[in-house]
C-alpha cells in the first residue's frame, strides 16, 4: 500500500509542488515540505485509501497550513514582544499570548454578534467537530442550510482577519 502511495506521490509531485507554491510562495520552504511529505508516507495510513491522490493533496495542504501558522505565530510573537515586552515564549500560556488579545476579543465579539443559531452551528462544527450532516439533523434543517450558516460565520471571522492582516504585516 505504501509503495503505491509513493508511486502516486511521484506522479502527482508536479501538482503538489504547484499547490505548495501557491500556499507558501517560498521555493525553499516548498521543497522542505515536499520532503517532509515524502518522509511521512512511510508511516501514513496503512488501510486502503479511496482516493490516494486526494489524500496526498490533503496532507500537503495541512502541512502548508502548519508552516503558515507557525510563521504567523512567530511574527505575532515578535509583535507582542515589541508592544508588551511580554512573557517567556515557552511558557504554557504562550499560545494565549500569541494570538494578540485584541484580535481574540474581536473574534469573540464577531462570533457573539452572529445570529444565535449561526453562532451555535459554527461552534458545533468548528470547536466540537460535529459533522455537517449531524448538525443538520439536530437543527432540523438541510445540510446546505448548515453550510449557509457556516458561510456566514466564516464571512464574519474572515473580515476581522483581512482587516487585521494589514496590521500584523506592518509589525
Amino acid at each position: 500500500m505504501t509503495a503505491g502511495l509513493q508511486a502516486i506521490f511521484l506522479s502527482e509531485r508536479p501538482m503538489l509542488l504547484r499547490l505548495l507554491t501557491a500556499r507558501l510562495r517560498d521555493p525553499d520552504l516548498v521543497e522542505d515540505v515536499l520532503q517532509e511529505l515524502w518522509m511521512k508516507l512511510d508511516v501514513a495510513a496503512s488501510g486502503p485509501i479511496a482516493d490516494p491522490a486526494a489524500y496526498l493533496y490533503r496532507m500537503a495542504n495541512n502541512l502548508a497550513f502548519d508552516k503558515r501558522r507557525s510563521e504567523m505565530r512567530r511574527s505575532a510573537r515578535e509583535g507582542v514582544w515589541l508592544s508588551l515586552q511580554a512573557e517567556d515564549g515557552d511558557s504554557p500560556d504562550a499560545e494565549r499570548v500569541l494570538l494578540a488579545r485584541e484580535q481574540l476579543q474581536e473574534l469573540q465579539a464577531a462570533i457573539a454578534a452572529l445570529p444565535e443559531r449561526t453562532a451555535h452551528i459554527f461552534r458545533r462544527y468548528r470547536l466540537e467537530g460535529i459533522p455537517r450532516r449531524d448538525i443538520a439533523f439536530e437543527e432540523g434543517i438541510s445540510v446546505s442550510a448548515v453550510e449557509k450558516h457556516l458561510k456566514r460565520a466564516y464571512q464574519a471571522v474572515q473580515k476581522i482577519k483581512s482587516d487585521l492582516g494589514v496590521d500584523i504585516q506592518s509589525m
Binding site: L99, L107, K161
Partner: peptide, 19 residues
C-alpha cells in the same frame, strides 16, 4: 491565495476564540 490563507488562519483563530 491571500483570501484562502487569511481564511484558514482566521479559522484556526476562531477555534481558539471559541475555546
Amino acid at each position: 491565495q491571500d483570501a484562502y490563507d487569511d481564511l484558514v488562519m482566521a479559522d484556526a483563530d476562531a477555534a481558539e476564540a471559541l475555546a
